[in-house]
Simulated assay, not measured.
Amino acid sequence: MLRTLVFALIFSFSTSSPSFSQDYPFQGLAADIAMNTLHNTLLNASIRSSLEEGESGAAEDAAYLTRYRSNPQVSARAEGQFLAFVEKTSGPAGAAVVKLEFDKSSPVKLWAGLVSKDGLKPGDAVDAVAAYWILNWIIANQAHDEEFSTKPVLDQVRAALMGSPRFRKLSEAQRQELSEVLMMNFLIQQAVYSQAVTTADTRMLEQLSSAAVQRFSNEAGTDLRRIKPTQAGFVTR
């Protein structure tokens, strides 16, 4: 079933303020485990290889290894690290605004509310990883009106994660932390992009597009403008 990742504005803070839109500091945010494991080892392989390598019975049998049970202590640690980064890059005022929104509703609930209609949910690292890639592809290509199925990307990411010995060594808490760090990145990037779409800010849309392209080029060796979602997941154009 074709779906569009819908970007409803969920934050009440002003994403057009200088601390959020001009600096856009969140593009490099993630715990070491998220960026080092995710980009350098896992997802680079998922884009550069086909699903054939990941469609084994063993991978299916071990699919539970991508899942996790939520631990409030892990969530608190991940959120604390995120807010510390926001304060470092955007100042105390920026961190206070984000914290206020997270106090109203947890980042995981906010994220789930955005992606549920696309069949994504908390509790599985695959869903968090796939949502992050899809969002950044949309931002890079300004493709917010394009419809495509998320399932092939989920299948592709699951194959990549299950094919990585490094990922398979992660503890349940590490899988949760990786996922929730990506969710919080997603929320900020989504909010800024949604604001730009809503206000038809073409200059900001171009800046965000370039930032997404640069981010994935640096961290994953992937040009988001040279891939596209298909029934086999992301493939080179």
Rank of each mutant, 00 (worst) to 15 (best):
F82H: 02
F102D: 03
G91Q: 14
A95S: 05
P72T: 13
V97E: 13
F82C: 08
V74W: 13
S75L: 06
G94Q: 06
T89N: 14
A93L: 09
S70W: 10
N71P: 09
A78H: 01
G80P: 08
F102G: 07
S90M: 15
N71E: 07
A96T: 09
L83E: 12
A84M: 04
A95F: 02
A96G: 15
P92E: 13
V97G: 15
A84S: 12
A84T: 15
P72F: 10
S105K: 12
S70G: 03
F85A: 12
A96F: 10
Q73E: 13
S90N: 14
S75R: 05
S106F: 14
V86N: 00
A95D: 02
S70A: 03
L100D: 01
V74K: 00
K99N: 00
S90E: 03
P72S: 13
A95V: 12
K99H: 06
K99R: 07
F102H: 02
Q81M: 05
V98G: 01
L83F: 08
A84L: 05
L100F: 05
T89A: 14
G80C: 04
A76D: 06
L100V: 03
A95L: 01
G91C: 10
V98S: 03
T89C: 12
R77W: 15
A95N: 03
Q73R: 06
F85M: 11
T89F: 12
E87G: 12
A96Y: 10
G91H: 14
A93Y: 01
S105Q: 13
Q81D: 09
Q81A: 08
E79S: 14
R77L: 13
D103K: 06
R77F: 15
D103G: 02
E101N: 03
L83D: 10
D103L: 05
A95K: 04
K99L: 07
S75T: 12
A78W: 00
N71W: 09
G94W: 13
F82P: 01
Q73N: 14
S70T: 03
A78L: 10
A84Y: 00
G91W: 07
A93M: 04
F82K: 02
